[in-house]
């Protein structure tokens, strides 16, 4: 009996000590458009691995500036594929650690039901005052929107109607408040549990623009950090891929 208790206690002590040595924190910079899925993934990540992911959300360009100026991030989930590549080329990321964690889907959306048809014909009719997009210079969804309009041969006709949000959330706000009748945003913004929430939508065919690749990278501060590597591996797992998909990527 005594031996059994001793064994039990020893086992318990071993478990606790292994938790203490293994469980660590990882500081993660996350592109704003990936806020909701990443919050969910972080909860699952902690459940499955014991590691805790501390999340900071922001625009990719701003996060880049912070990383260049000494921010303590160990993993970076960007909204594009250019910024992680740039960080790697500049020696601020672990070489070869880059991977695509999500591919964005561009949609044309209106808060009004039946305003946007499922072929995007509404763009040709041009029966609206403002078409909202995200800044094409800084946001991949903006660049994809411009590419789509150009490919449809509508850019010149619609250029004077464009209003620009600084990020997809702001573009969503312009449309949601009715100030712009319609606009290009991310599918992930209007989907909850795999269902479109409101308004009317045209899912832009993927062949009208370059794929909106969102890449992640382990940063220099995450080198040889088990928790950082664990998060990178976790993001590639089937379980996480299913979560990401349910958010409209």
């Amino acid at each position: 009996m005594k031996a059994r208790i001793t064994r039990l206690l020893m086992g318990l002590a071993l478990t606790v000590s292994s938790l203490v040595t293994q469980a660590a924190q990882v500081q993660v910079a996350v592109a704003a458009n990936f806020t909701a899925p990443m919050q969910k993934i972080a909860v699952e990540f902690e459940k499955d691995t014991g590691h805790q992911a501390l999340l900071s959300f922001g625009a990719t360009g701003k996060l880049y500036a912070q990383i260049k100026n000494g921010a303590p991030f160990q993993v970076f989930l960007a909204a594009d594929d250019k910024t992680p590549a740039k960080l790697e080329a500049e020696g601020d990321a672990v070489p070869g650690s880059r991977f695509t964690y999500a591919i964005g889907t561009l949609v044309l959306w209106s808060a009004k039901p039946d305003f946007v048809d499922d072929q995007g014909e509404v763009l040709k009719k041009g029966d609206f005052k403002y078409l909202a997009i995200t800044n094409p210079k800084t946001a991949p969804y903006g660049a994809a929107a411009i590419a789509t309009l150009t490919k449809l041969g509508l850019f010149d006709a619609l250029q004077s109607k464009l209003v620009t949000g600084e990020n997809v959330s702001q573009t969503y706000q312009f449309i949601f408040t009715g100030n712009a009748e319609l606009g290009f945003i991310a599918l992930s913004q209007i989907i909850v549990n795999g269902q479109l929430t409101s308004g009317s939508t045209w899912i832009v065919p993927a062949d009208l623009h370059e794929p909106i690749r969102q890449d992640a990278v382990i940063l220099a501060k995450g080198q040889d950090q088990p928790a950082a590597q664990a998060l990178a591996d976790y993001l590639k797992s089937e379980k996480v891929k299913t979560i990401i998909k349910s958010y409209g990527y």
């Binding site: 360009g61 701003k62 800044n135 210079k137 464009l162 209003v163 620009t164 949000g165 600084e166 312009f174």
Partner: peptide, 18 residues
């Protein structure tokens, strides 16, 4: 809405450059 010559002021332009 960041429209050139209508609503794109200096501070917004700086933000875009950054």
């Amino acid at each position: 809405g960041n429209i050139p010559e209508k609503t794109r002021v200096v501070s917004v332009q700086i933000y875009d450059h950054v």
